[in-house]
Computed example of a mutant assay.
Amino acid sequence: MLTLAFMRHAFVASTFIAIISGIVGVFVVARQLSFLTHTLSEIGFAGASFAVFAGWAPLNGMLLFTVLSSVLVGQMSIKESRREAVISAVSGLFIGLGILFLSLSSQSASSATSILFGSVVGISVGEVHQLILLSLAVFLVILIMYRQLKFSSFDAIGAQVSGTNQTVVSVVFLVLLALSVSVAAQIVGSLLIFILLTIPAASAKYFTHGVAKMVGLAIIFALLGTWTGLLLGYLTNWPVSFFIALIEVVIYVIALIYQNSVEAN
């Protein structure tokens, strides 16, 4: 399997995607931003569709749309009372834009399928290098801001006491989330992006409580899903994203069962 160049590219890309998704996902769950991840996935779909229409690489369109809109949408939906309305409005608008751009482009329907459901086995060497650079950039920023981000996400009072500028941390994290959405969409597609950015982290919190341990476990769960998904996709010729979704959900169910058994005892 690894003698094939496209499978080697797929495993390298999925490894970096899983690591970044596991790290960012812990803070997504802690900050209760799963709703924003879903919204950014719709925005990413519109961006990728625009890129197809303009003749760009889909990832470039995703980055443009998600980064520019992440802070705006995040600030619009801070208040819980209007969160659902903002999600519905923004998601509906960008899904419509995505469909419009695809209909205006000269590309076939396969472009829409790749954007919506991912096409990791079709990633080129150049796209792998781009994914690695983006992943390293996200990782480096999180490493630099880890202490402030941890306080802001898990201990808001402690963050205030330590003098952390929570507005700056929030804006930077929203941009990092936008980058992560664009990166992870390459393997699971824009429709299923919340799988890698929420479920591994949500599963990890049932097994451990330390932030560093949660990050490590979320990365392991994400890697398990992507690597096994690639293997099963290669063996069966079924969509890789299906297997990733199935594996991550199974892990989450096991986590819930474990948590219930602990509480029962």
Rank of each mutant, 00 (worst) to 15 (best):
L174D: 11
V169L: 02
L176E: 02
L131K: 05
S162T: 07
F151N: 04
T164C: 13
A184Q: 04
G163R: 06
F154V: 01
Q166R: 12
L177T: 02
Q186Y: 11
I157E: 09
S152L: 01
I132W: 01
L136M: 04
A185F: 11
L149R: 05
I187V: 14
M145D: 05
L179Y: 13
A159K: 00
F151T: 06
L140M: 09
S152P: 09
I187L: 05
N165C: 04
F154Q: 12
R147T: 12
Q166I: 09
V181P: 06
V169D: 03
A184K: 02
L140C: 10
L177E: 05
V175I: 14
L197F: 06
S170W: 09
S152K: 00
L174P: 01
V161S: 02
A184V: 08
N165F: 07
A159H: 00
L174F: 10
T167L: 05
P200F: 00
G189E: 00
V138R: 08
L131P: 01
S153H: 01
M145F: 07
A156W: 07
F194G: 00
L177Y: 09
V171T: 09
T198H: 06
I142C: 09
V188I: 06
L134I: 07
S182H: 07
F139P: 00
I187F: 15
N165M: 02
Q148N: 14
S170Y: 13
L191I: 08
S180P: 02
I193R: 01
Q130W: 08
F173V: 03
I187A: 10
A137T: 05
V169C: 15
L140A: 09
Q130M: 15
L136K: 12
V171A: 09
I144K: 03
L191T: 02
A184P: 03
L136Q: 13
I157H: 12
L177G: 00
S162Y: 08
L134V: 12
N165G: 06
L133T: 05
L149Y: 03
G163I: 00
I142R: 14
T167A: 01
G163W: 12
L140I: 07
D155Q: 11
Q166T: 03
V171D: 07
L136D: 05
S162D: 15
V168T: 14
L179C: 14
L174R: 07
V175Y: 14
L174E: 12
G189H: 14
L136H: 11
G158F: 03
S153C: 10
I195V: 10
G158E: 07
S170E: 15
A178R: 02
V172D: 13
L133K: 08
R147Y: 06
I144W: 06
F194V: 12
A184W: 09
V138I: 12
S153E: 00
I195T: 06
S182R: 01
P200D: 13
R147E: 10
G158H: 11
A137Q: 02
F194T: 03
V161H: 02
I132L: 11
Q148D: 13
S153M: 11
I144R: 04
